[in-house]
Amino acid sequence: MLNTRRKVAFRWWSRKSFWYLFFLSIFLLFIRFSKGAFLLDVFAIFSRPFWPGTAQKEWIVNGINLEQQIRIDLLEKDNQRLREILKLQNSSTKSQVSAAVISRRSRDFWQQLELNKGAKDGINEGDAVLGPGGLLGLIETVTYTTSRVRLLTAPSTKLGVWIERSKVHGVLTGVGTNRPQLNFLEKMPDAKLGDIISTSPVSTLMPPNLPVGVIQSIDDQNLPSPYAIVQLIASPEAIDWVQVQTSNEKR
């Protein structure tokens, strides 16, 4: 009887530590490609006691003047009727979800906010995020209970806007600093300091006519096209509560 089998054999797959590291890597890859799905939900649970209180929210809600509200309602109904005729994106069929900011990183390489509402509350990728004053950013990724906002100041954020006064269109591009850059599409744009810019009414992605910012300086000598520096109206550094405009219909 010849026993060719060794008593102790080294098998790399029978080592416990290998499988431990293997499954750890798989789990971390899952976190990476779901953009932090599980991790952010855990963070939301742990940071729940420290979420901002309702004082600012109540202030926002109560601060709305009733008379102005009635006038806006009438105007919006009128506007909605006209927009339906033109078959453009409609702002009034959307509902707003208010969410608290649970993580705020507005100055680092990644300029983003984390909100405490996610897919559970009907938030989708690409929804507009509003602070008191105007547009703050767009929803970049959504987990079940949280969502991530790409701020307008973040590099490579692009948004179609226009100057309401002179009907000049442009692309608002984040460059990392506090003030994004407005690249005009024309050679000689009719833009002045202090002009208010808002989201473009012909956009099929964004709700129309959300206020964005004020032009602070213009460089009209720049080639290939002139640009302006825009001061945003809503400041992400000071905001605890935001409104997310959720779209009811799937895009």
């Binding site: 890597s25 971390l28 976190i31 779901s34 953009k35 590099p155």
Partner: peptide, 17 residues
């Protein structure tokens, strides 16, 4: 290995790019 794991997690919680 630790650097790789930390990098995966941090890329998961940061913006793309």
């Amino acid at each position: 290995f630790a650097g790789f794991c930390l990098g995966l997690v941090l890329d998961g919680i940061n913006l793309d790019g």
